[in-house]
Nucleic acid binder design. Sequence first.
DNA 1: AGGTAATTTGACCCCTAGGTAAATCTCTCT
DNA 2: AGAGAGATTTACCTAGGGGTCAAATTACCT
Lengths: 217, 217
Amino acid sequence: MSEAAERPKAAKASRRAWSGAIQGRSEQFELKRQVVLRTAARVFSERGFHQTTLVDIADELHISKPTLYHYFRSKDEILLEVQQMAIAQIIDVPLEPESGHSTGLQQLKEFVSRYISMIVDDFGTCLIMTGVLPLQPENRLIVRKGSKDIEKMMREILRRGVADGSIAPCDPKITAMLFFGAMNWVPYWYRTSGEIAVDGLVQRTLDFVLTGLEPRT
Amino acid sequence: MSEAAERPKAAKASRRAWSGAIQGRSEQFELKRQVVLRTAARVFSERGFHQTTLVDIADELHISKPTLYHYFRSKDEILLEVQQMAIAQIIDVPLEPESGHSTGLQQLKEFVSRYISMIVDDFGTCLIMTGVLPLQPENRLIVRKGSKDIEKMMREILRRGVADGSIAPCDPKITAMLFFGAMNWVPYWYRTSGEIAVDGLVQRTLDFVLTGLEPRT
DNA sequence: AGGTAATTTGACCCCTAGGTAAATCTCTCT
DNA sequence: AGAGAGATTTACCTAGGGGTCAAATTACCT
């Protein structure tokens, strides 16, 4: 009999789970966008972009699929923004911590720390694991551009380090790509919840790359 | 008018392109399977698994989609076999080149050479770039198992090298994963058709990993 | 309270692409 | 040559999932 009475209840429950904060009404919009992005990033990374349906993401948030379209124009746009978030974490922060008189090696350490922190985050992990191929061509170019810029940062640091003698002579291009490889692969095996913390990982990575496997005499 | 006359010609032409060899009739089957696998691997890597339709693969080979089903049961099976081909290239060859009295370092060099050769090949590139997420769970386990076995090989080599002093002390687990990262990322930036040959890449990689970026005094 | 804008949703559309069936073609072998 | 197995194709089916719309619900404001 009272069959219709059940429906609104579910809606109420979902409303609460959606976001408990009582923020301003307009900031809510931006906030919820972020929550969607984080969730999408996580699920994309876990199951893969194409294995993830919009209903999956909606379910995770206890909302319905059309609601997602209130915040984003398309699945593609969600992925694009996720990846741009990741890239922005590196690009938007100028490198010099204080003043500009640090060695290339010091800058490299700073860069590695920042990059690995980004890569173990939901957004960074999604950037790497999902890749740009699912994006439509125009968006792909945008993300590719960002990635190239990041690569350029590393090359510059290496060049500077080689110049000031804090880094051994090497080909910046190849070295940078091998180095990025070591870091970009991290999402495939490292879990923040595991034995070693992010700081530890940064240290291990630096050890691996700086010291080398050949025994020092 | 003579519209129907065109069709058989296309079929004839495609027949020739399909495979020029005049092999035995039964070996043909296995041979064509390989051709499909190679092509699929290449296209999967270029466009991504889900962006590649079976018609794409068929077109590339100038055959029709159902023909693919004469050689494979499903799209998933194609990917599985591609990835198994890659893994087999490493697993199926025992490591010792001649006798067993080589150092860990020597074995490592041999391993890196073999692994990179695999990874720049169509099958290896597809293994890395497509990943196992598109596979259905059971097949995913099969490939994961193979990958784990390869990782174990590297860890063993590192342990051996540390033990015999040819490799500096290090944590085999972390080191192996960082090392694999450097190599697995190769498909994303390296082209065999580019400036440096595979042998050169192997050398650069070994330099990067063995020597380290810290200047040797 | 009641009007209004923002938010959310159920129901629906529809195209894409994996997969199938049955007919046709072709090769080989006697 | 002709029979039969194997290979290939045309035409088709179908499910899944991205995307849309109008209706309903909620939240804010005076």
